[in-house]
């Protein structure tokens, strides 16, 4: 019998060691596996290389991992945000290294690693400072850059629901990097709102098949859902609204 369910979230990340390369899903706050990152902080791994689109915002999740001094290097496309103060400080103080990768090349390098591609030629960034040091090649009259796959020891991903085989569905734009990161790491851990009985997920709608997933852990409903339905009443960070707008929530019509 296959059961990838981890009862304790710390067990799901306990083997992540000093110096590991960790992919962290999410685009901004959407899809960021905050509870898994908290558990990673608790188990104490440091000197990490993080592959993620952003470098954390606010004080939670990836931002907190950086604030706690656990990160040696960040590979990302867009570290600078209005609320990326933890990254900004660590970077300016020279406490972490940054590898800046155009977002599409970042995604395709992750996809390539998961699909067993040795390397590929991309037209993105030709003629820009980010092309420096890369092999250039002309194919059918257009110039491309050689890009290598990006793989990781572990991928931490945020999904909506999973079953014990590790099949995963996502929610809206929180899907972002999850499906490709799941394929590109030696061990893939997915946090979801809910683990459902095998056979419950529509096979036609499964986005990440369980073959790519090693562990799933349930962290409870996100605040803006009730029984899987969108009810709103939160801000962009998922925090409850406190002003009068809070009364104007969705009547669970989705």
């Amino acid at each position: 019998m296959i059961d990838k369910t981890a009862a304790d979230i710390r067990d799901a990340v306990a083997y992540i060691t000093h110096g590991a390369t960790v992919m962290i899903g999410g685009f901004g706050r959407a899809g960021q596996p905050v509870e898994l990152i908290d558990a990673l902080i608790d188990v104490g791994a440091s000197e990490l290389t993080i592959i993620s689109n952003n470098a954390g915002g606010g004080d939670l999740g990836l931002a907190r991992l950086i604030a706690e001094g656990r990160v040696r290097k960040v590979v990302c496309s867009f570290p600078r945000q209005t609320d990326s103060w933890h990254f900004d400080r660590a970077y300016r103080e020279g406490r972490l290294e940054l590898e800046l990768v155009p977002q599409g090349n970042l995604a395709e390098r992750i996809r390539a690693a998961g699909a067993g591609i040795g390397a590929f030629y991309s037209p993105t960034a030709v003629g820009t400072p980010l092309a420096e040091g890369k092999e250039h090649r002309e194919i059918d009259g257009r110039t491309y850059l050689l890009e290598h796959p990006l793989r990781a020891d572990v991928a931490l991903i945020g999904g909506l629901r999973a079953d014990r085989w590790g099949n995963v569905v996502y929610r809206r734009t929180a899907r972002n990097f999850g499906p490709i990161m799941a394929t590109a790491a030696r061990t893939t851990v997915v946090q979801v709102d809910e683990i459902v009985p095998l056979g419950t997920l529509d096979p036609e709608a499964i986005v990440t098949p369980g073959i790519f997933v090693d562990r799933v852990v349930a962290v409870g409903n996100r605040r803006w859902l009730r029984d899987g339905r969108f009810v709103g009443g939160v801000d962009l960070q998922g925090e409850p609204l406190v002003d009068s707008a809070a009364t104007d929530t969705v009547g669970g019509h989705r």
Binding site: F27, G28, A30, W224, F230, G233, L236, V250
Partner: peptide
């Protein structure tokens, strides 16, 4: 509308949008 912000539904600028 404010009460209908869905943190899972954002655009490239990380602002709330709709479907």
């Amino acid at each position: 509308a404010p009460g209908h912000v869905d943190p899972d539904l954002i655009n490239a600028g990380k602002l709330a949008v709709t479907e």
